[in-house]
Design a protein around this nucleic acid. Structure first.
Lengths: 229, 229
DNA sequence: GACGACTAAATTGTCGACACACCAAGGGTC
DNA sequence: GACCCTTGGTGTGTCGACAATTTAGTCGTC
């Protein structure tokens, strides 16, 4: 396991960005998502505490938060391990997304402001350009798609939905993208589906928005299921 | 605030049911849900630690878990407070439920075993009897409905869905039921809708199961929205 | 009388140390 | 030779104490 280095933890200004536990949580989350701490690897509290130069108490609180995000699994008296990603779990997550983002799209169709919809349109236009030029595909794969979905969830204005998707599931999903190297060839089709969705939002049609979003997520899932064999 | 007493924390057998933090979490969760700790009230770490006879470290870990369940809100250097329930948040939660339990019903239609469906039928028959005799209404209101939904979620066999609904949202929802005294007169109608759902499951019809469940949750929500004015 | 700065008390954040539980290696018995 | 018990070591669970930050109260000044 490559050293998740402790530099980010004691920058010149102490306590930059909240409490120590917060920064630890961010650092560990990044390390896990990026794969610096391999799946299923044991998390030794004394070792990590030494490595990051913090006490075990703060570290344990950070680990507790990671557990809430489903990024680590902890068993009493046995310690914590980084989660093991599996095809089954990924499918389950996409089923969740289909339900949640479908509802998000439905709500966004009436809750988004005109300005937000326009901004979404601008983002999509940008994506279109990048795809046209066959460049920036990497960006679209890695960030663009997530950005688009992110904004729709925000647009639902439902705080429960936002917290769930953008704070918990988001990172787990990102972990799959990074470690499974999920770069489907659906990029063009996904772009088209995004445009259909934008149209539904522009027409303020909740029913249609949910339908399109669910179909979109379901297509991604089917594509995945096929790629996983 | 009535004293959440520390008796449950040191029963004859030490460590009955996991780690100290686990038991603390359970006790606090119960105290919050039941309303022993009022909404919005500040959670003083030294005071609670003294009251329960535990160290602040263990207490803080328990509070961190409560935060993950959305039962308390914590701000850096300011401490934690019990969440404030609001009509808006309740509506948002029901929108979540509509999406999630709808998906759960869809999956359950193909994933539940015949035995599980039969057991669900037995449970429903029992509910029917209780309603017929005009007795046990309190039970149906408080537990029966939740039990029914609980089993369907379990029946989906989707672990993400199960964890989300049965471990996180469940308690928050129970808090609303207890503290808002939510006992709608929809009891008979809800029972009928439960039966429609059972039929859909028996026919192994995912589409219909999701439709009925969503309609069911949506009706509850509309009923609530009306009652809240 | 009201506003602002300073002081003191209380609370949160962080740490190091002790107690107990789990795990692996070694020795004894059948 | 295989199995069980013992025993040492590592790691987690829990605790009490120190440091930093917020808050409340007080005093002084305008």
């Amino acid at each position: 396991m490559t050293e998740p280095c402790l530099i980010e933890l004691d920058p010149s200004v102490p306590n930059a960005g909240g409490t120590l536990t917060d920064r630890l949580f961010d650092a560990l989350q990044r390390a896990i998502v990026e794969g610096e701490m391999p799946q299923g690897s044991k998390i030794s509290e004394p070792e990590l505490a030494r490595r990051y130069g913090v006490s075990r108490g703060s570290l344990r609180e950070a680990i507790a938060r990671l557990e809430a995000c489903k990024l680590v699994e902890r068993k009493p008296n046995l310690g914590a391990r980084v989660v093991e990603l599996s095809a089954e779990q990924l499918i389950e997550i996409f089923q969740l997304r289909e339900a949640l983002e479908g509802m998000a799209a439905r709500l966004a169709a009436t809750a988004m402001t005109e300005a937000e919809i326009d901004a979404l349109g601008a983002l999509l236009a940008q994506h279109g350009q990048q795809i046209e030029q066959e460049q920036g595909q990497a960006y679209f794969q890695k960030q663009g798609d997530l950005d688009f979905h992110f904004r729709i969830v925000q647009g639902s204005k439902n705080r429960q939905l936002i917290a769930l998707l953008c704070e918990d599931l988001y990172h787990l999903l990102r972990m799959y993208r990074v470690q499974f190297g999920m770069r489907s060839k659906r990029c063009r089709q996904a772009f088209e589906e995004h445009q259909y969705l934008l149209n539904a939002l522009r027409s303020r049609d909740p029913e249609m928005a949910e339908l399109v979003m669910r179909q979109h997520v379901r297509s991604s899932r089917r594509n995945l299921e096929q790629a996983l064999r």
